[in-house]
């Protein structure tokens, strides 16, 4: 049909049209404030973080340990069997060097988000489509030296400052070679 149609609707504006008052517009903000219940599994996860422990959940039927913990196993749809403390060390599964904040401000020093497979959680492998990782940031590292497969360890906030939040872990830093 595009070969039979000469005119397509849609009127393009540029920022100047707004500044010059050529178009009418109105600003508004959605007033959407929440207190999300943490629930059972995530509540336990956050309480663990406050104590300096990363908790996973284990399904005995699927022999999988997942993180963050949850009450139901997605694979067999049975209740999870138990919480399991994981190590606060892991392996960088993937990472990025990000020069833009969430609200699109430019930054000079990149943030380094990463997916980190935690020691003690199930690992991705030929036999498993599953990988026990969480999203967090890397720190105390030269961005140019970050690589997939790098061994890392959590850097925690001082115990008194922890509030039961994912940010109780400040970031993950490279493990020294001898410990990696």
């Amino acid at each position: 049909m595009t070969s039979r149609i000469n005119h397509f609707p849609g009127t393009s504006l540029n920022e100047q049209d707004f500044a010059d008052g050529k178009v009418l517009f109105v600003h508004d903000a959605l007033k959407a404030e929440y207190a999300w219940d943490t629930g059972i599994a995530i509540g336990t996860y956050l309480a663990g973080l406050k104590r300096g422990v990363i908790l996973g959940a284990h399904c005995r039927h699927c022999r999988k340990t997942v993180v963050p913990p949850r009450t139901v196993c997605e694979w067999c749809f049975r209740p999870m069997s138990e919480y399991i403390p994981l190590q606060d060390t892991g392996t960088v599964n993937t990472f990025s060097l990000c020069y833009v904040t969430w609200d699109v401000r430019r930054i000079k020093e990149p943030e380094i988000p990463a997916v980190i497979t935690l020691d003690g959680a199930s690992q991705l492998g030929p036999a498993s489509l599953f990988m026990g990782g969480i999203m967090h940031k890397l720190g105390e590292v030269n961005p140019e030296q970050v690589h997939i497969g790098m061994r890392v360890k959590a850097v925690w906030k001082p115990e008194k400052e922890r509030e039961g939040a994912i940010t109780d872990i400040l970031y993950f830093k490279p493990l020294p070679k001898e410990e990696a």
Partner: peptide, 22 residues
Amino acid sequence: LLERDREAPSAWKGSLPVTSRY
């Protein structure tokens, strides 16, 4: 696994940052 941890924060507070120009 289904017992609630007494130390667990009951709620996480936040907002949806949705700002519009119509």
